[in-house]
Design a protein around this nucleic acid. Sequence first.
DNA 1: AAATAGCTTTACGTTTACGTCAATGTAAAC
DNA 2: GTTTACATTGACGTAAACGTAAAGCTATTT
Lengths: 150, 150
Amino acid sequence: MDITAKDITHKDGHKDSHRTYSIRQLSKEFDVTARALRFYEDKGLISPERKGQTRLYSARDRARLQLILRGKRLGFSLIEIHEILDLYTPKDHGASQMKATLVKYRKQIETLKRQREDIDAAIQDMVDGCAWLEGQISTVEQQNANEHKA
Amino acid sequence: MDITAKDITHKDGHKDSHRTYSIRQLSKEFDVTARALRFYEDKGLISPERKGQTRLYSARDRARLQLILRGKRLGFSLIEIHEILDLYTPKDHGASQMKATLVKYRKQIETLKRQREDIDAAIQDMVDGCAWLEGQISTVEQQNANEHKA
DNA sequence: AAATAGCTTTACGTTTACGTCAATGTAAAC
DNA sequence: GTTTACATTGACGTAAACGTAAAGCTATTT
C-alpha cells in the first residue's frame, strides 16, 4: 500500500486537483529519474511541498514538470525554461510591470515562430530526400527486374 | 587584402560554387567562433580542405554548417546532427541499404513533427497568456482612469 | 527485531560543447 | 626586418545536466 500518494479518483471532481504524487510516480509517469526532479527543484523550477522530509508533488507541480519537459524537447536550457515558467506564473503587478511581461511574451512567441520555421524547413528537406530516395529505389528495382528477364 | 578567401562574384555563375571561405569568414557570417568550427570538424561534422595547414571551406561545407546550426537551434546534440547530416549525404548503396535509409528519413520526419506539435502548443500558450495579460492591463488602466475622475 | 522498500542529503564523477590560454607558423604591411 | 594579423595544434578549464554511489532516516512486511 501507498499512503504518501493516494489514488483518489473520487466522484468529487475537484478533488483531482488536490491529488499528490510521490517522486517515483512522477518520474515513472514522465520517464525521468528522481535525481532529475530533485535537480529541477534545486534550480528553482519546481517546489513541491514536504510531508516531513519527503516531497509531495501537487497537480500544479505536475503541470510545471510537463512544461519543463516540453522546454527540454524544444532544446531550451533549464535557465531559459525557468524564465518561461515565470511567464506561466501569474504575478499581480502594476500596469508597467505587466507591460514588461507582455514584451517577454511576445519575444518568446517570436523565438518559437523562428524555431517553427526551422522545423518546417527541416521537415521539407526530409520529405524531399524521402521522395528522391523512393524514386531511386524503384529505379533500381526496375533494373533488377529487367536483368532477371534477360 | 585577402588571398586565401577570394571574393569571386564572377559573371561565370557556377564559379560561385567554387568559392572558398576562411575560418574567420564563416565564423563571422554565422556568428560562431573559430573554435566551434574546429570542434565540429573534430567531431566529423565538416571536413574542409587544406591549403597547407589552413582550412578552406567550400560552399558545401558552408551548407553543412547551416544545417549544423539549424540542428542546434532545434536542440539536437552534435551526435544527432551528425546522423542527420548523414541523411543529407547521398550514398549510392544497394536497394536494401537505401530502404534502411528511408526508414531513418521517416523516423526523423516523425521526430520533427512531434517537435512541431510541442512548438505549436507552446505558441498557443504564449498567445493565450498574452491576450489575458492585455485584458488585465486594459482593466487596470480603466480603473486608474476612473480613480482619476473621482 | 530484522529485512525490505522508498525517501532523504551530500558529494564526487561524467558527458557535451565549447572557452581560453600558450606556443608556434606564415604571410602581408610598414 | 620586424611588427601585425590571422592561421595552426595542443592542453587545460568550465558550465550545464544530470549519473552514481554512500550513508542515513522511516515505515511496512515477515
